[in-house]
């Protein structure tokens, strides 16, 4: 069940990114848009799913990314990216896990249930580390397709997009929980 929830959450986040964020971004940064999004919401799903389920989130994320690519990427983009698509999918699915493992290695075991209570800032920091890992990995994976001159820009857009996506995802969830709280309180009156 958790597997399907994570995959569905990833597909939903990717759908919002693909149908809302990317069209707007492509007006301003058309040369980078095929590779990266400035607000990449699925990164929030990657980080939160890995926080909650550890390595068990990886297969669900792989399914989510694969389904998202199939559902939302234009065929032309998919054909263009195809040779390196599998590498890109795996790097994306493993990036958050690698960041959590790195944090664990330096003494901040932040997985759900391992620490009494995780501060939201710790999740943001781990998300930032994960976005750097993902950014480097994706740029390497698609280095053959990205023009040499575009590599620094794409690298920055990947990292910034992932991090902004995580923050937006957390803020959206925060408001959702807030509304649920208000709704349940007003219902109890």
């Amino acid at each position: 069940m958790n597997f399907l929830i994570v995959a569905a959450a990833y597909i939903l986040a990717h759908g919002v990114t693909a149908l809302v964020v990317t069209p707007v971004q492509s007006i301003f940064f058309p040369e980078y848009t095929v590779f990266a999004s400035l607000i990449y919401l699925p990164h929030g799903v990657r980080v939160l799913a890995t926080w909650a389920f550890g390595w068990r989130a990886i297969p669900a994320l792989v399914l989510g990314v694969t389904m998202s690519a199939w559902l939302f990427s234009p065929t032309a983009s998919l054909e263009f990216l195809e040779p390196d698509l599998v590498k890109g999918i795996l790097i994306g699915a493993f990036s958050a896990f690698l960041a959590f493992e790195l944090a664990r290695f330096v003494g901040y075991d932040s997985y759900f249930g391992h620490m009494r209570k995780v501060n939201w800032k710790v999740l943001i920091i781990i998300g930032a580390i994960s976005s750097i890992i993902n950014s480097l990995g994706q740029t390497l994976a698609y280095s053959g397709l990205i023009g040499l001159g575009n590599i620094p820009g794409t690298l920055v857009i990947y990292a910034v997009g992932d991090l902004v996506g995580l923050v937006v995802c957390m803020v959206v969830l925060m408001f959702c929980f807030r509304w649920v709280r208000w709704f349940s309180l007003s219902k109890g009156q």
Partner: peptide, 25 residues
């Protein structure tokens, strides 16, 4: 409990960024 824990984390976030305000009750 993972969901509950996430709610607690985000409630802290709400407090820290100054968005918490009193509900009607």
């Amino acid at each position: 409990s993972a969901l509950f824990s996430l709610r607690c984390i985000l409630r802290d976030m709400e407090k820290d960024i100054g968005l918490q305000e009193l509900s009607a009750p």
